[in-house]
Simulated assay, not measured.
Amino acid sequence: MGRVEYAVISLRDDTYLEDIQETLGAFFDIGVNQWGVGGEALAEAFLASGIAREFERRNPVFVAGKSALDLLQIAAPFVAATDEPPQEARVSPSEEYWLGWILGFYQVRTGRPYRQVLDIVPFDELLGMYYPLHEAPEAKFVEVLDARLAAAPLPTRLKRQRELCGITQEELAEQSGVSLRSIQMYEQRQKNINRASAETVYRLACALHCSMEGLLQF
């Protein structure tokens, strides 16, 4: 498969780089290890809540003006958790902290949206890069992740959200009322979900507990 192309943000100012890395590191460390939310679910909430987009824009209100605890409160409505996010927490040098820290570095250096990364490489697989890359130069992580992204086909958002919910195509068809064949064709890109009726996308989004936009391909 050919090299994956993506737009690089022209803004190369590193003014907020440390803020981004430290805040995202704490966000994933506290969210997983102290709040008890699964990494995949927290990563999806990071995307669905709009936090990821604000960090891509380097919005100072978010990257410098909000703590990890503030961000977890914003993400909370997008997480199926019985408990509220912690009000106080101590950040630890965990693998999850490293992943948030290095993903912040990667996004600033490459300009690639977080959604594109997490749609291709699941959270747990990224976390598995901790050994041996946590002691390697940051540029090595960029090199390795770029190669991983270029080698993999991009899964549809529909498939990723279905797998995140832990249901089969058959179960999704039953819960949404959308035919199994249509779901299979959307996931295999034989049919373009962007051209599906609003009702079809709405039914799928309701069954998968996500926004309609979250299922469209861009």
Score class of each variant (00 low, 15 high):
82 T>V: 13
87 Q>D: 15
110 T>P: 06
58 R>W: 10
60 P>S: 07
69 L>P: 05
60 P>N: 08
99 L>F: 05
88 E>L: 15
68 A>V: 10
92 S>W: 12
88 E>K: 15
105 F>H: 06
84 E>I: 14
59 N>D: 11
79 V>I: 13
58 R>D: 02
93 P>I: 10
74 I>W: 04
66 K>S: 03
104 G>V: 01
98 W>D: 00
81 A>S: 15
82 T>N: 10
56 E>S: 14
94 S>T: 15
82 T>F: 05
96 E>G: 02
57 R>Q: 09
62 F>I: 10
58 R>H: 06
69 L>K: 10
81 A>T: 05
101 W>M: 01
106 Y>I: 10
75 A>T: 07
84 E>Q: 14
63 V>L: 03
66 K>Y: 10
110 T>I: 08
62 F>V: 09
83 D>I: 12
55 F>S: 02
78 F>L: 08
67 S>D: 04
106 Y>N: 01
77 P>K: 14
63 V>K: 02
73 Q>E: 14
66 K>E: 04
55 F>L: 04
80 A>Y: 09
57 R>A: 05
94 S>N: 10
65 G>I: 13
54 E>W: 07
87 Q>P: 04
97 Y>H: 13
73 Q>V: 15
78 F>T: 07
58 R>V: 10
98 W>N: 02
97 Y>E: 02
84 E>L: 15
110 T>A: 06
70 D>V: 12
109 R>C: 00
83 D>W: 12
71 L>S: 05
60 P>Y: 11
84 E>S: 15
103 L>G: 00
96 E>W: 11
101 W>G: 00
58 R>M: 09
80 A>D: 12
92 S>M: 14
101 W>S: 01
